[in-house]
Design a protein around this nucleic acid. Structure first.
Length: 517
DNA sequence: TTAGGGTTAG
């Protein structure tokens, strides 16, 4: 068009072509075209400038995007929102907030971008806070905002807040479908209310035209260990709709098989995902399979799968196999796999802890000490458990003494330990950190795990029979899992624990995972 | 009749 025709491109042309550069990640063409636009005097056109901001942001060139933004003669709401979205995409919530605070006026998109941005960087508290600010002094939220706010609640285990949003959605007459429906199902499932999530899922029938609500439901069942129901949901979708499953569907489905030890089903779904559904397995799917096979005891098959993978395996995959070796006490294989992990990632804490423990229990003190010394200098993620009470989220770290009710919690814990012992609980000191040698100290360390602090806080502050919901950032430890079984019986409470990977529902001394986790 | 900003799931 530029070389061979008499037609001169106008502002519309540049918006289309710059957007193409943006989508195709073609930096140099984009910049050449920008020069054309300048030559034609279109650098004053707000549409052209805005798409240019977006283009630079999409290309990850946030500084250049800002340059265009700052230098633009005409700026409107779209310019500000595009620039904020650029910062959000770069994970720079500081930059985003700076612009958001100084912009002359904010519309629902500005607010939604920020609420979603905080979710993307896992600043869920900030996301909810901003959402509340919006309700007080901003424009009314729309579906976009609500989906993000629900995601923040889901991640915080903030059930009361999530319920409030559900009421708001109904009160304001939003049509509950697709993404919003998925968001609600996901929020309820992640807050431990899997039954209610399912109720909502079946209550909205005509509008499940997309994969989103299905994935939320299948994923919800999977994380609650309701494997057969996850499979049933998938089969129902297959038989009654024309919706195509995607990669997330299969991750959830394989996860469900893994939690339920459904090895044959898992193998079969993994096989059919590419051959029948046309979804190519990615590293995460292989990860699910290694976890499924490994934890079920098929260590050799799991390793063969890693070796035969068309994608280079990462330390997460090897880590899944290593964890399986620990469960099945396959120390030789563990040592071999441990070396593979350490080679590519010398600072892998989980791997080092496991190896050190293994060496110690095998009496190989020198080797254990080498790893232990190295571990001392590494930064470990502290165990953290949170619990919502009256709409407020309380967090506890291991041995935390910062909570206002600390004294009460610790004396309750002492009393609780006695009661649990009488009921037959025996601490599993094998799970304690490596640097404690005294058996009694080990038990004290266990008693102060963040899970137990949060449960004690919950028992103190809620009326009898109220279910207690807690969330841990890591996997729950073996001792806490055992102790919680006893607590549920001794105190007659349902205790719902969400760890990094799944839910455990404790009731009458039994856990829903049947100790397979 | 043609253009520009925000969505969540493992």
């Amino acid at each position: 068009m530029v070389r061979g025709s008499a037609v001169v491109p106008n502002q519309y042309t540049f918006v289309f072509i710059l957007k193409a550069c943006s989508c195709g990640l073609r930096t140099s063409e984009g910049e050449q075209i920008y020069v054309h636009a300048i030559k034609l005097g279109l650098d004053g056109n707000v549409y052209v400038m805005n798409v240019l901001i977006k283009m630079y942001a999409d290309l990850g060139l946030i500084v250049l995007a800002r340059k265009v933004f700052d230098g633009s003669i005409s700026r409107d709401l779209y310019s500000w929102n595009s620039m904020i979205s650029g910062y959000v995409g770069a994970g720079d919530m500081h930059g985003a907030r700076g612009l958001f605070d100084e912009m002359p006026e904010r519309d629902v998109v500005s607010w939604s971008t920020m609420v979603a941005g905080y979710v993307q960087v896992s600043s869920f508290m900030e996301s909810i806070e901003l959402f509340h600010e919006m309700l007080q002094q901003g424009p009314p939220p729309n579906e976009f905002t609500l989906v993000s706010a629900l995601a923040a609640c889901a991640n915080l285990l903030a059930l009361d807040q999530g319920k409030w949003i559900h009421v708001y959605i109904k009160k304001e007459g939003f049509k509950i479908k697709d993404r919003l429906l998925a968001g609600l199902i996901d929020m309820y499932a992640k807050c431990g209310e899997i039954e209610f999530a399912h109720t909502i899922f079946i209550s909205v029938d005509s509008s499940k035209q997309t994969i989103w609500p299905w994935n939320s439901m299948i994923g919800g069942f999977a994380m609650h260990g309701r494997s057969q129901e996850a499979i049933n949901a998938f089969e129902q979708m297959r038989m009654t709709t024309r919706i195509a499953p995607n990669k997330v569907t299969f991750i959830s489905l394989l996860n469900a098989c893994s939690h339920g030890k459904l090895v044959a089903e898992g193998r079969q779904y993994f096989k059919s995902m590419a051959s029948f559904y046309g979804v190519q397995p990615e590293i995460e799917h292989y990860g699910c399979m290694v976890d499924l096979l490994g934890r079920a005891g098929f260590l050799k098959e799991a390793e063969d799968m890693i070796v035969a993978m068309p994608i280079p395996p990462d330390t997460i995959i090897w880590g899944a196999l290593l964890a399986a070796c620990r469960i099945h006490r396959a120390s030789e294989m563990a040592e071999r796999i441990g070396k593979v992990i350490t080679e590519s990632d010398p600072n892998n804490i989980g791997c080092s802890v496991l190896l050190a423990n293994m060496y110690s229990s095998g009496g190989r003190w020198t080797e254990a000490k080498i790893i232990r010394d190295k571990l001392g200098g590494m930064k470990k993620t502290p165990g953290c458990t949170s619990i919502e009470l009256n709409g407020m989220v309380h967090q506890f770290l291991v041995g935390d003494r910062s909570h206002p009710q600390t004294e009460q919690i610790y004396s309750f814990l002492d009393e609780m330990t006695v009661k649990l012992r009488i009921a037959g609980y025996v601490p599993e000191v094998g799970e304690v950190l490596l640097d404690i040698y005294d058996e009694e100290d080990k038990e004290t360390a266990l008693a102060r795990h963040s899970e137990k602090l949060a449960i004690a806080f919950g028992l103190i502050n809620t009326t009898p029979k109220t279910p207690i919901r807690i969330m841990k950032n890591l996997r729950v430890c073996g001792d806490c899992h055992e102790a919680t079984k006893f607590i549920s019986k001794v105190y007659d409470r349902e205790i719902i624990v969400r760890d990094r990977l799944r839910f455990h529902h404790f009731k009458d001394g039994i856990c829903s995972c049947k100790d397979y986790w």
